[in-house]
Nucleic acid binder design. Structure first.
Lengths: 215, 215
DNA sequence: GTCTATAATACGATAGAC
DNA sequence: GTCTATCGTATTATAGAC
């Protein structure tokens, strides 16, 4: 079976292949999942190594120690979220359109990275956001807040606290995914992560939020 | 310093006092905090024991092992949440009033138990809700869903998916607290857990949700 | 750059004294 | 009912061969 060295390297078959970038990427992916589940303190280097198909020595070679790996893992979604919002060019859309676009993008991002929300909850509750501070989240939040402020100024949106509303929007867009493994036991017959159900949730979120903020 | 055996027993001063109920309660409180931060696998029995002012042997004596303690910890909020909703007698209020009452109660509960939300996120993501299933959450959710269904039937609320809206409401009411330790770094000058700020958030949540669901 | 082997510590659980 | 002491195992991190 042919396999590009840049793509996935399965755990057992291919050792001793030298591809530093691929190795680091595999470690980061595995670490993101492990840290999401267990946070910094609970994550097991051995588990990350196994999932990535490398040895624990490799992890220490590239990332010094568990904390170094953790910091690197947190950085990726921080910059990604910022870039996603930046590239939406929300400032060129009327407030209602911008808000709709924003909600759709946020939920799509959650659906594409269903584990990442937990990464931040772990960080908040285990480390009091000590490493969260290192990201450029203030700027990322500002994209959302500006849309709301613009809507208030134009009187499309009612008088509301932009920051508080921003938090509420993020809560709506993320809870569905972060709590999914519990929620699925409430309605076991429905696969709420299917594309159809996610689209349904997205539409419902747009409806609730837009009706909720309109003047 | 006089101290009731039923109240808190500080870690270092008072050992060897026999008060089984107080001891169990202290272990449960300490365990709730530890499990909230680290989940089942990441929690340290030693840390729970220290926080509770007992030895690890005591924990094994009362709860058999870590899993037994975990199950007992999860049960408390499950029954409490159900009871809180039950005692609100929502069925006696018109839908809008019921929804308002519900939101206020949910946020007040979160504010009183700011760690418990994480307990469920840990459970969802570490154990896929295996122990969540043991609670009576289906019934608890039903209280909220019934309010929404009643509002739709009376045409006070627009046509919406009651379950999905229920999830959205919980997301709004909980995210603020679960993510607080990260959020506080975005606006470091504001104490968002002060009574005034929590009341402000509550009012904003009522406004958003009621405007969001109205016909 | 990757591996094997191992040192050093941390943790869950139990036995047995009081 | 509570404590001290300890066994066995799991885990992080490093040293050194290839």
């Amino acid at each position: 079976m042919v396999r590009s060295a840049k793509t996935k390297r399965s755990s057992n078959s291919s050792r001793q292949i030298r591809d530093p970038e691929a190795t680091q990427q595999q470690i980061l992916d595995a670490a993101e999942e492990e840290f999401s589940k267990h946070g910094l303190s609970g994550a097991r280097i051995e588990a990350i190594a196994t999932r990535a198909g490398v040895t624990t020595a490799m992890i220490h070679y590239y990332f010094e120690n568990k904390e170094g790996l953790y910091k690197t893992v947190l950085q990726r979604p921080a910059t990604e979220c910022h870039d996603v919002l930046h590239e939406l060019n929300l400032e060129n859309l009327p407030p209602e359109e911008a808000l709709k676009t924003l909600i759709r993008a946020a939920i799509a991002y959650e659906a594409a990275h269903p584990r990442r929300g937990m990464l931040w909850f772990q960080e908040a509750n285990q480390n009091q956001g000590k490493y969260f501070k290192l990201g450029n989240w203030q700027e990322t939040f500002a994209y959302i807040i500006k849309v709301l402020e613009r809507g208030i100024a134009e009187e499309t949106f009612r008088q509301l606290d932009p920051f508080v509303t921003c938090i509420q929007i993020i809560g709506i867009c993320t809870f569905y995914f972060n709590a999914h493994e519990n929620i699925k036991h409430i309605t076991p017959d429905v696969d709420r992560l299917s594309p159809e159900m996610i689209e349904k949730y997205t539409q419902a979120a747009v409806n609730l939020i837009l009706a909720g903020v309109r003047a």
